[in-house]
Simulated scan of single mutants.
Amino acid sequence: MTGRYARNPRPPSRTARVTETSDYVAMLQRLLWGYARRIGDDAAALVHLRELEQTLRDATNYGMYLANQRGSNGQPGYSQNEQAAMLGVSRQAVAKRIKLGEEIHVSQQILTGRGAVVRIGDVRTQRAAGLAAAGVEDRTGSVRELAAGNGAALQEGKAS
Rank of each mutant, 00 (worst) to 15 (best):
K99D: 06
N81V: 06
T55Y: 01
Q54L: 13
R10E: 13
Y78E: 12
R57S: 02
G40C: 08
V118I: 15
G157Y: 05
A84D: 05
V117N: 04
R91P: 03
A67L: 15
I98E: 04
S90I: 05
L111M: 10
E51K: 02
T19L: 13
K96I: 09
R119S: 06
A67I: 07
A132Y: 02
L31Q: 12
A6S: 14
A45W: 06
A128P: 02
T2F: 07
T140R: 10
E103P: 04
Q54G: 02
L28W: 13
A153I: 10
A129Q: 12
R91E: 04
A67M: 11
R37N: 04
E145C: 02
I39P: 00
E102K: 15
D42E: 12
N68E: 08
N150I: 03
L66S: 03
G40N: 07
K99G: 03
N150C: 06
Y65M: 10
M27W: 11
G151A: 15
V18R: 01
P76N: 02
A6N: 08
Q92N: 12
A59R: 10
A153L: 13
A6E: 15
G115M: 01
A26I: 00
R17L: 15
K96L: 06
V123H: 09
R70P: 09
A133E: 13
R124A: 07
T140V: 13
G141M: 00
R124P: 01
I98L: 01
S107I: 04
A93G: 05
K99Y: 01
R124K: 04
G88S: 03
Y24V: 09
M27D: 14
E51T: 01
S160A: 15
Y35Q: 05
G63D: 04
N81K: 09
L146F: 00
G151C: 06
A67C: 08
V89C: 12
